[in-house]
């Protein structure tokens, strides 16, 4: 077997590849469904219905998609520059910590100022969480994969400490949760009788802005150049360390945004289960979108649909909802292969 580079790739192939790959992932995962003894059509039907079958389901899916879009963008921007930021989970919590610090009574402003303030401090905190990995990478060549990963555990333990110690809300009946965000800072609902909040609009706007930046600005060009070939970029006079720092701040900032939307939009207060792995799922979102910022919008909604749908499926038919994670992982791997096949042709010889 040999792989031969394709000379040209049609647009249709690039668009069809992820869809075919997700079809393949669904087929592979249906083996697990057969094992549970349920019928495949009933199971996937229940999943689809739970994700998009009603107004309530769609609202829930979009609510879940909001942080996934932001962490997906965080991964997409970083991976474009081959900066392997696997720490979106920790950066999300940093954003949530900052929003909690400033949003629970420290300052009171008009909502028009208060909400932007929370996002700014959240993004700064998320970016700051990457300061150490970026410094270690640029100065000492310490691999950022491991440092960002390990920081997730450190940050989560720090949040745990704050919530069980100094930040625990005395009104929380002993639960480890922080004081609620003041009314001025709470993101308004954008759909009646649902939990869907302003965060979704902010996430979509972020995606469009990131796309414009990556596509049409010098910064975006430099980021792509560093990702494609750092040596060539250096020769072209692009500062690799500067670009990586910029990428890290944007990436961490976006993950910080996700923390703000969850604290100020969905929950209203900081808890330890604020994020059921949104940071890690963001990597899957970015990969499914082939690191394209606008594709992230679609793939985040798709992934959110799988998670929300699997929850309601596991209630309807007797299948553990861990199948959602299997589906997501299988999709990531299948999409990875299919995107490679858009650039290479397999020769069986």
């Amino acid at each position: 077997m040999r792989l031969e580079p394709r000379e040209s790739t049609s647009v249709w192939l690039v668009l069809a590849a992820p869809i075919l790959a997700i079809g393949a992932a669904l087929m592979l995962s249906s083996g697990l469904v057969l094992w549970t003894g349920e019928s495949i059509t009933a199971a996937y039907g229940a999943l689809l219905k739970g994700a998009f079958g009603s107004r309530f389901a769609v609202a829930e899916t979009l609510t879940r998609a909001t942080p996934l879009m932001l962490t997906g963008l965080a991964a997409a921007v970083a991976f474009r520059a081959k900066f392997w930021n696997i720490g979106a989970e920790g950066q999300l919590y940093c954003g949530a910590l900052a929003a909690t610090y400033f949003g629970t009574g420290l300052i009171t402003l008009h909502p028009l100022l208060m909400i932007p303030l929370l996002f700014v401090v959240g993004a700064l905190a998320g970016g700051a969480a990457l300061a150490l990995p970026v410094y270690l990478k640029s100065k000492l060549k310490v691999d950022e994969v491991v440092t960002t990963l390990l920081l997730n555990f450190i940050i989560l333990l720090f949040v745990n400490y704050l919530l069980e110690g100094p930040w625990r809300d005395p009104m929380s009946m002993g639960w480890p949760q922080a004081a609620p965000i003041i009314d001025e800072g709470v993101l308004p609902r954008i759909m009646a009788k649902s939990r869907l909040h302003l965060g979704l609009i902010i996430a979509v706007i972020s995606a469009v802005l990131i796309w414009l930046t990556m596509r049409f600005t010098v910064w975006g060009y430099e980021i792509r150049a560093v990702g494609n070939n750092a040596t060539a970029a250096t020769f072209a006079g692009i500062s690799v360390n500067g670009t990586v720092l910029r990428v890290a701040l944007i990436s961490g900032g976006l993950a910080g945004f996700a923390g703000v939307t969850e604290v100020a939009g969905l929950k209203g207060y900081l808890t330890l289960d604020l994020s059921p792995g949104f940071g890690y799922a963001g990597i899957a979102v970015a990969m499914l979108a082939n690191l394209h910022p606008l594709g992230v919008i679609v793939s985040a909604i798709f992934l959110a649909g799988i998670y929300v749908g699997a929850d309601s499926m596991s209630r309807a038919v007797n299948i553990p909802n861990y199948i959602a994670d299997v589906l997501v992982a299988a999709s990531v791997l299948c999409v990875l292969v299919s995107l490679m096949l858009t650039q290479y042709r397999v020769k069986w010889r």
Partner: peptide, 12 residues
């Protein structure tokens, strides 16, 4: 991807 697949399959 392998980490995601292996752990989710284990849990499932």
């Amino acid at each position: 991807g392998i980490t995601m697949l292996a752990s989710s399959l284990s849990f499932f």
